[in-house]
Design a binder for these strands. Structure first.
Lengths: 241, 241
DNA sequence: TCAGGGAAAGAGCAGTGCTCTCTAAGTAGA
DNA sequence: TCTACTTAGAGAGCACTGCTCTTTCCCTGA
């Protein structure tokens, strides 16, 4: 996207100008991320500019609008979360330990969310009014669920996870799952993918519930509750003990 | 809260003045709700006032701040959602049809959310920065989950739903669940409540996922997918077919 | 009838996103 | 090396925001 912008502005890639421009863009995003932590989604362009010792209008040389800046942050956020999930999965040395991998990935997602709640809210919270996420984000957004599904795939390939009976999976849902499967993880039964996607939703729900304050005055043992949930989900999906 | 305000302003309850004041308050909330639908959480006090043919400062006679107005809307929202859930549960004539009641309640929640997405986002979306939900809301907020848990309670009392084995429910989670149980549904095993709360979280996750756009370009058969999920959850909790 | 108090208006403050114009500075080509 | 061009940034300005303060109007209870 950045190189795209450079092209439209007629800059030669690799030039010194382009490099300082890229550094500047990164610095703006970094300060914006910092403001995001305190001000939430309604961060102020002017405040970001002030923090960098420049005037607000100067930011418009780098981001066409506030929404554009948010989009860049969202994209970075999806990638950061995806990387965290992948790293979590990778911590389990025994690749055949499916449950361990599942739980490690889930906990990694939660840890990332707790560490950067504002960014998580930006990704998964209430959408900003009249803001449409560009298509670029879908690839980055699918990194985390793909990490989860890949665990199922490994288990299925190894014959440890078996295809559950297609009890009551509606036909059109199977169609959706089949399309999704072909796009991301070929050769995985739709029914298994349907259960896997449910697990992803439960993970998202659990993290959002905790982060958005719905657990306040209700559940104190947050991490234990989370771990218990994810274990139950793993069992429901068919990941052996 | 309103009567509280009236008291502090020294108004006699039941007076004419108090009545027009209450009507005015309702009208403000109604217009605010209308604006909420288009502008999301960042609705404008001035716009609301303009819509009512008055000046912005006049609104401050009724709500001390924008946050106060939002709080009132949140409270109303929780109650509206709770009422919808209860009504959904009540549509099932055969009270012994636990699965039917569970699904009806879930679908009622989803329908309410799809009908008033902005209000749902206000309740369950990313929290507004430096806004603290007052204690008043917790009672209203618990109406919906209580409706769900009551179904489990009915099933447990009837001996249709049995207490699941406490396999791997951490001790501190049991403590949380016990406290929650004593507060809302006495005589329900903690383990069952733990599973029930998971169902509530999955319901919330599914609705939020759909409403916040995470299902875009992924799942088309929204209602079928939702119904499938809630059926699976019911089974996982132990609600018989 | 009349004082007290609540409702509304209006000006004003500090802040916002965004646009426009203008200047300074760097870059490439002859 | 000089020139034509592009870019970064500054600053003013527009329309908007939440909120406060003061002033005016009018209803109400005694």
């Amino acid at each position: 996207m950045l190189s795209n912008l450079c092209d439209t502005l007629g800059m030669t890639a690799g030039g010194l100008r382009a490099r300082v421009r890229a550094e500047m863009t990164e610095e703006i995003k970094a300060t914006a991320r910092r403001h995001l932590a305190t001000d939430g989604a309604n961060l102020s362009l002017r405040a970001v500019a002030r923090d960098m010792g420049m005037v607000s209008s100067a930011l418009y040389r780098y981001f066409a609008s506030r929404d554009d800046l948010l989009t860049a942050l969202i994209l970075d956020g999806y990638n950061a979360l995806g990387a965290a999930a992948e790293a979590g999965d990778a911590t389990v040395a025994d690749r055949a330990d499916l449950r361990g991998r599942w739980l490690a990935t889930c906990h990694a997602v939660r840890t990332w969310a707790l560490g950067t709640p504002a960014e998580y809210a930006l990704l998964f919270g209430s959408p900003v009014p009249d803001y449409r996420a560009p298509q670029d984000t879908v690839a980055a957004a699918s990194r985390t669920p793909t990490t989860l599904i890949r665990i199922l795939k490994d288990g299925f390939d190894a014959g440890v996870i078996t295809e559950p009976p297609a009890d009551g999976v509606p036909a059109d849902v199977r169609t959706d799952m089949a399309r999704l499967r072909d796009r991301a993880v070929p050769d995985l039964p739709e029914v298994l993918l349907a259960r896997g996607s449910m697990g992803w939703i439960q993970l998202f729900g659990a993290v959002s519930f905790e982060l958005f304050g719905q657990l306040d005055n209700v559940v104190e043992a947050r991490e234990a509750y989370f771990g218990y949930q994810m274990g139950q989900v793993a069992t429901a999906i068919g990941i052996p003990e």
